[in-house]
């Protein structure tokens, strides 16, 4: 199995792309993406596809620099394209050709000898579960089968990095789950994945790292595990009297713990400055007020929480 490239698959510094009409698609993006499975997250129009265009060397940046799979994109766009596979979001396959012909053709276009391209096409269609349908015209395929064919053509030349643009777009729940399972397997093959999507659940399911961009700017980048750690918020549910939550909120504030009253029974406590000592402070405050403690828990974030919080800044 091909070893995963040790270095980052993407490095960018001050990467900017401004169109002639003055629209800035990317504004000073500086990011380093490690090898592995990485989610590129952002709302529609955030600049995900623009970043892919720049990564493939299809358009030069207005300012800044960009390295993909160890290659300078501006200096050697062809070298980058030899190392990278690309799966577009939209329909892009010749409908009157068989899947085997399509995938083999794109293998040849990536520089593989014809015989090797046909062999690899067969292997890749087998891998994505289209072995029995490979001689059927792509025009007769369902959306899910076309997505798999697109993935097969992206993998046929054994790339170091594969760029997936919304790979689950238009798929039903079963098809989406199957596609995500396929994507999750790629890391084990030594192929790094950069998956652009606005579906944070997809990223959470298959990626190890995430890069979030919004309106052409970097929101955050890092390992998903770290981002998903506790939020620094404790949720406390109390009862025993009508103004229990309000009274507790005031008592905690008096003890130096910022708290927000969520409803009559619930208080969200900011524990970021006190750490685990905050649990003792809450316990003591509840006891002093003579309240009943129903629940006390730290909140775990989803990527949605992280994105919304950071994007709002």
């Amino acid at each position: 199995m091909q070893p995963t490239p040790p270095g980052p698959v993407l490095r960018a510094g001050g990467l900017t792309l401004t169109y002639p009409d003055g629209t800035t698609a990317l504004a000073g993006l500086t990011v380093e993406v490690p090898a592995g499975s990485v989610g590129l997250v952002g709302a529609n129009g955030a600049g995900k596809t623009t970043l892919f265009r720049l990564m493939l060397g299809l358009v030069p940046p207005t300012a800044g620099w960009l390295q993909v799979a160890g290659c300078d994109v501006v200096a050697d766009p062809i070298g980058v394209r030899s190392r990278v596979g690309y799966m577009p979001e939209h329909d892009c396959l010749p409908l009157d050709q068989s899947a085997a012909d399509v995938v083999a053709t794109f293998g040849e276009l990536a520089g593989l000898p014809p015989r090797a391209a046909r062999q690899r096409a067969s292997d890749m269609l087998d891998l994505v579960g289209l072995d029995e349908a490979r001689f059927r015209p792509v025009g007769t395929f369902s959306t899910g089968m076309r997505q798999r064919t697109k993935l097969a053509q992206a993998l046929v030349a054994d790339p170091q990095l594969v760029l997936l643009d919304e790979p689950t777009a238009g798929l039903d729940p079963v098809g989406r789950e199957e596609m995500l399972q396929l994507v999750a397997r790629l890391g084990g093959f030594g192929i790094s994945v950069l998956m652009a999507t606005h579906l944070l659940d997809d990223v959470q399911q298959v990626c190890e790292h995430v890069v979030m961009i919004d309106r052409g700017r970097l929101v955050l980048a890092g390992p998903i595990d770290q981002l998903m750690q506790t939020t620094g918020t404790m949720r406390v549910e109390v009862g025993g009297r009508g103004d229990a939550a309000a009274a507790l909120g005031q008592a905690l504030a008096d003890r130096g713990l910022p708290a927000v009253v969520a409803d009559d029974r619930t208080v969200d406590v900011d524990t970021s400055r006190h750490g685990e000592d905050a649990f003792d402070v809450v316990r003591d405050a509840v006891a002093d007020l003579g309240l009943r403690l129903f629940a006390l828990s730290t909140r775990h974030r989803s990527l949605d929480d992280v994105f919304l919080q950071r994007a709002a800044r």
Binding site: M1, Q2, I78, S82, T105, E108, L109, A110, G111, L112, P113, P114, A116, R120, D123, D126, L127, A157, D158, R185, G188, F189, G190
Partner: peptide, 24 residues
């Protein structure tokens, strides 16, 4: 499960890609 086999054979560049597109 044949899994995934990496490709370690010859790999061409622009010339081969252009030739492939011509052939296609």
């Amino acid at each position: 499960d044949r899994g995934y086999r990496p490709y370690q054979g010859p790999r061409g560049g622009r010339r081969e890609a252009t030739l492939a597109l011509w052939r296609l």
